[in-house]
Simulated scan of single mutants.
Amino acid sequence: MIETAADGTYFEDIEVGPVQVSSSVIFERDAIIAFARQWDPLPVHLDDNAARAAGFDGLTASGTHMLAVKQRLLHEFDLGPTVIASFGSDETRYHAPARPGDVVELHFSWVSKRSSKSRPSCGIAQHLSELRRIDGVLLLSILDTILIRRRVTEEVYRAS
């Protein structure tokens, strides 16, 4: 058998349905402001009064910051060297703001998978990522489609 990566999750390992949960991360006030200053300097991400004037209970994390936290936590699910590429993200939704002191974790599940017609050594899979506060409140959801390696057998290798 020819294997293309030393570790990680292969196409054959994907089980559609079960939800895995990452470790937790805290949205620290200083980190929210620092991220916003560099990447998304809207007033609601920098100033409590501006956030309250916009209808929030105070400072909120940037959606881009939430996506960055989601992406970092995603690496806990051992996809690693088996992921070849992302085809894109769909249905990105911000359900509630992340605020200073919020403790969040990523809920991850595979939603679908199929063999690649053009690349027999690969599969195409979709996964749902939900960034949730530890009290269960959903903050962010996103559906990603990826190209992922198969465990390459001699038969698959000859066919490709």
Rank of each mutant, 00 (worst) to 15 (best):
R93P: 12
E76H: 12
R93V: 13
R72Y: 08
R151M: 01
P97A: 05
V156Q: 01
V103C: 02
S116G: 09
E154P: 14
S62Q: 03
D90T: 09
I134W: 07
V69H: 02
F108D: 00
R158I: 04
S62A: 06
V44C: 10
S129T: 08
M1C: 13
L67S: 12
T82N: 00
V16T: 12
A125W: 00
E155G: 06
L131E: 14
L131Q: 06
V152I: 14
I124K: 06
G55E: 08
G58I: 15
P81A: 13
S109D: 08
E105I: 05
I26S: 10
G63T: 10
H65T: 10
P120R: 02
C122R: 04
R151E: 03
T4I: 11
E130F: 06
R29S: 06
Q38K: 13
T60V: 15
S62M: 09
I26V: 15
G63Y: 11
P120M: 06
T82A: 02
I84W: 12
E105P: 00
R149Y: 11
P41I: 05
E28D: 15
R133K: 14
K70A: 05
E12S: 02
F35M: 12
V69A: 08
R37D: 13
L147G: 05
Y157T: 06
G55I: 02
T4N: 13
R133Q: 07
P120I: 03
L59I: 09
R119W: 01
A98V: 14
C122I: 10
L74I: 09
E155Y: 13
V16N: 04
I124T: 03
E76M: 07
D13L: 06
R99E: 12
L73S: 04
W110Q: 03
S23N: 07
P81T: 10
H107R: 11
R151W: 00
H127E: 05
